[in-house]
């Protein structure tokens, strides 16, 4: 029985000080090879200073159908944004 190499999700830190960001996925037999392959597939032009890989099956994602219940509650809380408050010009920068 032939077995496909598992799928890994790849996250790259583009520069010092930035978060790792998802860039794509690839197949590899184990984590070490996944990092090596990620180096070749996703950083051929200095795109990264650090790589994370995680097997895709370990990622839990929110479901598209839950988008409403998950994210809508924050829509009506405009007071969380600083622009909600009018501060008179005389007060200066705040």
């Amino acid at each position: 029985m032939k077995k496909e190499w598992p799928l890994w999700e790849v996250f790259i830190r583009g520069q010092h000080g930035l978060n790792h960001r998802h860039v794509g996925s690839l197949h590899a037999p184990d984590a070490e090879m996944a990092i090596k392959n990620a180096r070749d597939v996703y950083t051929r032009r200095n795109e990264g200073v650090s790589i994370w890989v995680v097997e895709s099956k370990h990622i839990t994602a929110s479901s598209p159908s839950e988008r409403g219940p998950l994210f809508e509650p924050s829509n009506d809380k405009v007071y969380r944004h600083p622009t909600f408050f009018d501060i008179p010009d005389e007060v200066g920068h705040m």
Binding site: E4, L7, G24, S25, L26, H27, D40, V41, R44
Partner: peptide, 25 residues
């Protein structure tokens, strides 16, 4: 370097296709 890029392009695209529920094999 160019030929290696082509391999990379193929891999990006296979991954995109796999998100639609087809396997690489």
């Amino acid at each position: 370097a160019k030929v290696q890029d082509e391999a990379g392009h193929g891999l990006y695209l296979y991954c995109a296709a796999e998100t639609l529920g087809v396997s690489r094999d």
